[in-house]
């Protein structure tokens, strides 16, 4: 998995996505722009991060969950 490892922790790609969200990126396009990751990988990664409880979706916007905030500290 590109963004979440088997133990449920974010990989380096996942951490980059989480940090981009913390820095204000709220859409896959903005995250792709901030991280330099291809858009398809960001979309796929966001699914994984969401399934792992690290990211929350509100309408069209993504944000960090409490677990996600803890993970990047």
């Amino acid at each position: 998995m590109p963004c979440v490892s088997a133990d449920g922790k974010p990989t380096s790609s996942g951490m980059a996505v989480l940090k981009a969200i913390k820095d204000g990126a709220a859409s896959p396009e903005q995250i792709a722009s901030k991280t330099g990751q291809p858009l398809f990988r960001v979309r796929s990664g966001l699914r994984e991060l969401k399934n792992a409880g690290l990211v929350e979706e509100t309408g069209d916007k993504v944000g960090l969950s409490k677990t996600g905030e803890t993970a990047i500290q």
Binding site: F40, R41, R43, S44, E48
Partner: peptide, 13 residues
Amino acid sequence: SQGTLRLSDYKGT
């Protein structure tokens, strides 16, 4: 080889 992907992940490209 880069995780689970959907065709819809490529929308816009």
